[in-house]
Computed example of a mutant assay.
Amino acid sequence: MELSNLTIISGETFDESVLGVVTLRQQGNIPFQSALLHEYDRLVLMLHNELEKERIIRHSIDGDLRTQTLHVDIQALERAVSAGDNNELVTSLLGGEIIWDPQGILENLRQTILQFDQPLKERVLFMEISRFLHMYVKSKRYIAAGCIMDAYNCVLIALYHWARIEVSEGGRFPEPAVWDQLKSQNTSVYKLYEELTISTETLEQRVELVLLACEFAIMSKMADCCTMLLTILGSRNEPWSVEELLIQPGLSHLEAELPIILRKLVSRSLIREITSWADANAGDGHTVRYVM
């Protein structure tokens, strides 16, 4: 499609610095569509390089046709794919029509998702095990404090991340409607989800049952799901500090999860802690670093 035609579709003008454009329309009774289409007839996703803001949103109307336009930085879209922190962008990319892609960026990214080979699979597995462990730990702490509803909420989210792990291990990119994806695999995770949500046992009993299953799953999946982190740790002879790890590509948005997963890997003897005297400006005690 010629660039001049794109101004008609989006309701605004732009130049050839736009890397790509995807459009998504309401499509009748299709089971799952992006929530970005809610109350809109059309979504236009415009991909930019080095956008000033990570996302710019504009709304327009042409007669009865309402359009929501998202201007998104390419790094935000790539992060949504690898980290799963913005499923709506991924849904739009997979389900929309690519109408402008002169460098093939959008088509290549779409094919990367559909093929789901390494290293994307390793990145997704590590993101999900990190979040799975984090929510499991939060649920354990809530139930110990007697906050049963909060424990329930956290273990439900933990199950969601476990479901995404199961789908990924099966060779498919985990989509937003992950429970529908997982249902066909007939795994124990889906049965645990039903046990947690519809069982006749007390809420506390249900949470404790699922937490036991989560603990076993974490122990059995840690090594395989942490390949990405283990590769980084083994990429040099010197041990890594948490600060150094958090500036590595793919780890920078795991501030809450990374310390927990490092401790779990140490306790499983999959990595080692190395201690040294703290720097002068770091206070008393020892600095802890990690190595394979």
Rank of each mutant, 00 (worst) to 15 (best):
residue 1 M to K: 06
residue 3 L to N: 04
residue 7 T to N: 11
residue 15 D to L: 01
residue 19 L to M: 09
residue 19 L to F: 00
residue 21 V to I: 06
residue 27 Q to E: 15
residue 27 Q to V: 11
residue 29 N to R: 13
residue 29 N to W: 07
residue 33 Q to P: 09
residue 34 S to M: 10
residue 34 S to E: 08
residue 39 E to V: 07
residue 43 L to Q: 03
residue 46 M to A: 06
residue 48 H to I: 00
residue 51 L to D: 04
residue 55 R to V: 14
residue 61 I to R: 13
residue 61 I to W: 02
residue 66 R to P: 01
residue 68 Q to E: 09
residue 69 T to H: 00
residue 69 T to Q: 05
residue 70 L to H: 09
residue 71 H to R: 02
residue 74 I to V: 09
residue 77 L to A: 07
residue 83 A to T: 12
residue 85 D to A: 03
residue 86 N to Q: 09
residue 87 N to A: 15
residue 92 S to W: 08
residue 92 S to C: 12
residue 93 L to N: 04
residue 94 L to W: 10
residue 94 L to G: 04
residue 97 E to I: 10
residue 98 I to C: 03
residue 98 I to A: 04
residue 100 W to S: 04
residue 106 L to K: 01
residue 112 T to Y: 00
residue 112 T to V: 01
residue 117 D to Y: 03
residue 122 E to G: 03
residue 124 V to W: 02
residue 125 L to N: 07
residue 137 V to D: 11
residue 138 K to Y: 11
residue 141 R to D: 11
residue 142 Y to S: 12
residue 148 I to W: 03
residue 149 M to I: 12
residue 153 N to G: 15
residue 154 C to H: 15
residue 157 I to W: 13
residue 157 I to D: 14
residue 166 E to V: 13
residue 167 V to Y: 13
residue 168 S to L: 13
residue 175 E to D: 10
residue 177 A to H: 12
residue 178 V to C: 13
residue 180 D to S: 14
residue 185 Q to K: 13
residue 187 T to I: 07
residue 192 L to C: 04
residue 193 Y to A: 03
residue 196 L to D: 05
residue 199 S to I: 12
residue 205 Q to R: 15
residue 209 L to D: 13
residue 211 L to S: 11
residue 213 A to P: 06
residue 214 C to T: 10
residue 216 F to C: 14
residue 220 S to F: 14
residue 226 C to D: 10
residue 226 C to H: 10
residue 226 C to E: 09
residue 226 C to Q: 12
residue 227 T to F: 03
residue 230 L to F: 07
residue 230 L to I: 08
residue 233 L to H: 02
residue 234 G to N: 13
residue 250 G to Q: 08
residue 250 G to K: 07
residue 250 G to L: 07
residue 251 L to H: 02
residue 262 L to Y: 10
residue 263 R to S: 10
residue 264 K to T: 08
residue 267 S to R: 11
residue 271 I to C: 01
residue 273 E to C: 03
residue 276 S to I: 01
residue 279 D to P: 00
residue 280 A to E: 11
residue 286 H to V: 12
residue 286 H to D: 10
